[in-house]
Design a protein around this nucleic acid. Structure first.
Length: 606
RNA sequence: GACCCUAUAGCUCAACUGGAUAGAGCAACUGCCUUCUAAGCAGUAGGUUGCAGGUUCGAUUCCUGCUAGGGUCACCA
């Protein structure tokens, strides 16, 4: 808080004056006063008691008197135990509102000259997006907005995993059962169309594995069943065929590549549609089929520098045991690359494309170890960008039954969930009947806005690091601490501002200075409005959109109370009426900005 | 087995990074629409912050040890 910063030197001066003591600024802690106590800002006096032989009350009182006499902004104070509660003058609060109203880009910091890349989404192209992707995508997209507001130049990238055995599984099932059908002939969205074949593969593979297992049990009756089950899984004809297809792909077999291109293009059409519905977009998309070979040069470099070593079979490793980690494989004996090989190469490529100070990977916490190793290797290789790598490790979205598993069909599909939310928004809005004069397109746009607002807020309000629970039995709320509540608050303010403009109400900010008394509800609102830029900064430092989400909720809640308990247009005092309109306008502005950081749209009516 | 997370009200989540009597929402109960949108507001009830120690003026927060759940330790990505 800026007032706190003004007061710190005075506190230092107090101890110098009264006790000839030099106190360092770090020992002085201010915090906002808790709601249940009178005051705005609290100085904690406990830390000084060791140096000064006083009771907490007496020392608090002495500091309070000193601050009061030196700063006109402090109207009064009280001391409870070791807490010195300071109350600001109403004049100061009024001035605070006027000043923030005058700022063009309130809560947007000027450019800091730094570049940051945010990688998120990163889907596989063998199945449609699900709820886990949604958390990832909304986090990444919101974080990009937050970083922009903090003055960074941001590049949003998507790294699509478009190659590998999982893709071949879909391709193989399609070859066998597809009968030349396409998304267009069947009317199925492309990503779902391909995903269906992936499921089909898994089913067939499971059957074939079970049959093989039975055969092996007859052939090797003495063998441990577990060993036989493993053997059957490895030797299933379906899996062998998929592996064969992957080899053909890597050899560049034209018909395999043709099928691969066709099926991926269907998936991309589907993904694009979903991204569009979500309201997210990327500045650049990387494809692993184009990057997976890049890491080999890095492996050569590491070998030459003696950071990596080669085993007898020709495979390449790095020994991280001195860092408390393990030995890690970097290149297979046959010279083909593994996951981390590609990531090493891709990291270089990213930096060449966009020389950034920070590179953020939005990836689930199941990959913590991988990113620890990746960063460490890049540091050992002396990459200038390595220290700027940050793995935004978010927790999984779990169902009451546990983790979502696409193979077992226990995933919450993104398209389905969005559609379901739109349906609820439609139904609920119609019941309320507040927008009966909207035409169809306007109404549908609103349903989309509400559905996505509810979803995004639901997924972003939780600390990203923590796992979260989604219960498909209970639909996402439209009441209470929800996205819809924030949107509703905005719409209510918008109605106020429409009316003010309709009535031709106008005033200049300067005239508001003449006001002398404020209500508690107004002070609380101004206090929150004043915090906004700090919360924007904090959200970036913590890589946590949840900071913005809870701020937006606090703000909406404070406004709702203000709205319910104080009247605007029935307020007899003209000046006060103007002040409340201005306060409403500023609340709407900040609320809209906060929602924007979360990727949520703010409706004018609902 | 080793390492890394997590544990807060019946449920889902907060707690300004060590500060006051641990807060919201949902669910339950009570009030408030003839006045700016009731998708709202106010209130009641609900807690040994997993357990046991320690550090200090002060611990949900830091340290140690347990317990429970999840994850990783793949020539999968």
């Amino acid at each position: 808080m800026n007032v706190a910063q003004v007061l710190v030197p005075t506190v230092v001066q107090f101890f110098a004056d009264k006790y000839s003591l030099s106190i360092s600024e770090s020992e002085i802690t201010f915090q906002t006063t808790r709601k249940e106590f009178e005051g705005d800002l609290t100085l904690i006096v406990f830390p000084f008691l060791k140096k000064v032989k006083e009771t907490p009350e007496a020392l608090g009182k002495a500091i309070g008197e000193y601050l009061c006499s030196h700063h006109a902004q402090i109207a009064k104070f009280n001391v409870i135990k070791g807490f010195l509660n300071l109350s600001f003058s109403h004049r100061l609060w009024i001035e605070t509102l006027i000043q923030l109203a005058q700022q063009e880009n309130y809560g947007v910091f000027p450019s800091n000259g730094e570049k940051v890349m945010v990688e998120y989404a990163s889907p596989n192209t063998n199945k449609p997006l699900h709820l886990g992707h949604m958390r990832n995508i909304f986090l990444g997209d919101s974080l990009a907005n937050i970083l922009k507001a903090n003055g960074y130049q941001v590049m949003k990238v998507n790294l699509v995993n478009d190659r590998g055995i999982h893709i071949c599984k879909s391709m193989l099932a399609y070859q066998k059962f597809g009968k030349g059908e396409t998304p267009h002939t069947t009317g199925i969205k492309g990503d779902h169309f391909v995903g269906n074949y992936y499921v089909l593969f898994e089913q067939e593979n499971k059957k074939a594995t079970a049959e093989l297992f039975e055969q092996y049990k007859n052939i090797f009756p003495d063998e441990n069943p577990e060993t036989l089950a493993e053997k059957a899984a490895k030797e299933s004809p379906w899996l062998l065929e998929a592996q064969q297809m992957l080899r053909k792909w890597e050899e560049g077999d034209p018909s395999t590549l043709q099928l691969w291109r066709t099926m991926n293009s269907w998936v991309y059409e589907g993904f694009e549609a979903t991204y569009r519905k979500m309201g997210v977009e990327f500045d650049k998309t990387y494809y692993e089929s184009q990057t997976y070979l890049l890491g080999k040069a890095v492996v050569e470099e590491g070998l030459a520098k003696g950071i990596f070593f080669k085993k007898e079979d020709g495979s390449v490793w790095i020994d991280l045991t001195s860092e408390g980690l393990d030995q890690k494989l970097l290149l297979r004996a046959d010279g083909t690359s593994v996951y981390i090989t590609q990531d090493l190469g891709t990291a270089d490529m990213k930096y060449a494309d966009f020389p950034m100070q920070k590179s953020i990977y939005v990836v689930g916490n199941e990959q913590d170890y991988h990113f620890k190793v990746l960063k460490l290797i890049l540091q050992k290789l002396g990459r200038s960008y390595a220290d700027g790598i940050f793995h935004l490790s978010y927790g999984m979205v779990e169902l009451p039954s546990g983790k979502m598993k696409s193979r077992e069909g226990t995933v919450v599909d993104a398209d389905d969930l969005i559609e379901e939310m739109v349906q609820i928004a439609r139904q609920r809005t119609r019941e309320l009947g507040k927008i009966d004069d909207f035409d169809n397109a306007q109404a549908e746009a609103l349903y989309q806005m509400l559905a996505l607002g509810a979803l995004k807020y639901y997924l972003l309000r939780v600390d990203p690091r923590k796992k979260m629970l989604f219960n498909p039995e209970e639909s996402i709320d439209f009441q209470g601490d929800t996205g819809v509540y924030l949107q509703y608050t905005h719409a209510k303010i918008a109605a106020i501002l429409r009316r003010a403009s309709l009535e031709g109400i106008s005033y200049s900010l300067e005239t508001l200075r003449a006001l002398e008394q404020l209500s508690q509800q107004e002070i609380e609102l101004i206090e929150l409005l004043q915090f906004y830029p700090q919360r924007v900064k904090e959200a970036a430092q913590e890589y946590a959109p949840s900071v913005i989400a809870s701020y937006a909720y606090e703000l909406a809640k404070a406004y709702s109370r203000f709205y319910a308990e104080l009247s605007i247009f029935n307020e007899p005092d003209l000046l006060r009426r103007h002040f409340r309109i201005e306060l409403s306008a500023q609340t709407a502005r900040v609320l809209r900005a906060a929602l924007h950081l979360l990727g949520i749209q703010a409706p004018e009516r609902m």
